[in-house]
């Protein structure tokens, strides 16, 4: 439930953004993000909301963990 996915911002439109995670694109809300973000920044996404920013190296590392979760057939963890 509380695993959050690091995602790269590829489009920005006010309080909405489109993020890319391993090629999958999804709209996310920036309504509860504490700071401004730019294209290419990484954010942690949970239930359709960016909840924090994270630097690039850390995001890439977290994505490696996420890949392992997917490979082992994790279910429900996106929430």
């Amino acid at each position: 439930m509380c695993l959050a996915v690091p995602s790269r911002i590829v489009e920005l439109d006010g309080m909405k953004a489109v993020v890319d995670v391993r090629g999958a694109r999804r709209e996310v809300s920036l309504l509860i993000l504490p700071e401004e973000v730019s294209l290419g920044d990484y954010v942690i996404v949970h239930a359709g909301f960016a909840i924090n920013t994270v630097n690039r190296d850390d995001a890439l590392e977290a994505l490696r963990f996420f890949d392992k979760v997917l490979q082992s057939g994790g279910e429900g963890v996106f929430l």
Binding site: M1, C2, S29, H46
Partner: peptide, 8 residues
């Protein structure tokens, strides 16, 4: 959900 989810 806990505090991760409720602000959303």
């Amino acid at each position: 959900g806990f505090e991760t989810t409720s602000p959303s």
